[in-house]
Design a protein around this nucleic acid. Structure first.
Length: 166
DNA sequence: GCCAACGTTGGC
DNA sequence: GCCAACGTTGGC
């Protein structure tokens, strides 16, 4: 009997569009998500993400902030090379190549929404469909967050997205 | 530009 | 192990 398939998980990842937007991801197709220097975000990438997991691509520090499209986890986790690069702004001399502190996954483009699903729009649904969604919580700064499947599906509906979830 | 939230650092 | 100081995030 085959092993039961791993349950697909859903995620939200933040990026400042001035630095790297959903259009930038569409242009390169695939991008190593380097530079994350938060342990909880690292743990999600290193320990919980699996190839094929779908991601809400969120524009932070944007006008308006909100979900701009969909991406997909495209690699298993591997050590973040920028931690070992002294010329990188993400260099971390405390990360030992034999015991790397920082890990990442590659992200690939799936879809750019016709219109951003703004944070305001998400908040407006927070009591009817998006209850408990982390990104609408005040003070929630985590740049990699798990998303419940029903919340993910609801955001796709709000966007009129082409992406379908099985 | 402001500042609340909150994670990290380091003195003790 | 506590906690003040500090730095960053990110909405506004």
């Amino acid at each position: 009997m085959p092993a039961m398939a791993q349950r697909r998980r859903y995620w939200l990842m933040k990026s400042e569009p001035d630095v790297f937007s959903i259009a930038d991801l569409e242009g390169v197709e695939r991008e190593p998500w380097d530079g994350v220097r938060n342990y909880q975000a690292r743990n999600y990438m290193r320990d919980e993400m699996a190839v094929g997991d779908l991601i809400l691509f969120y524009h932070s520090n944007a006008k308006p902030p909100g979900v701009a499209g969909v991406a997909r986890v495209a690699s298993a986790a591997y050590p973040d090379p920028s931690a070992f690069d002294p010329d990188s702004k993400y260099a971390d001399p405390k990360s030992d190549p034999d015991d790397p502190r920082w890990w990442l996954i590659d992200v690939e483009f799936v879809e750019a929404f016709a219109e951003i699903v703004s944070l305001d729009a998400l908040k407006a649904e927070a009591d009817r469909g998006l209850e408990g969604m982390l990104v609408v919580r005040r003070g929630q700064r985590l740049s990699v967050q798990p998303v419940e499947k029903q919340h993910f599906v609801r955001v796709l509906e709000m966007a009129g997205a082409k992406t379908r979830v099985r």
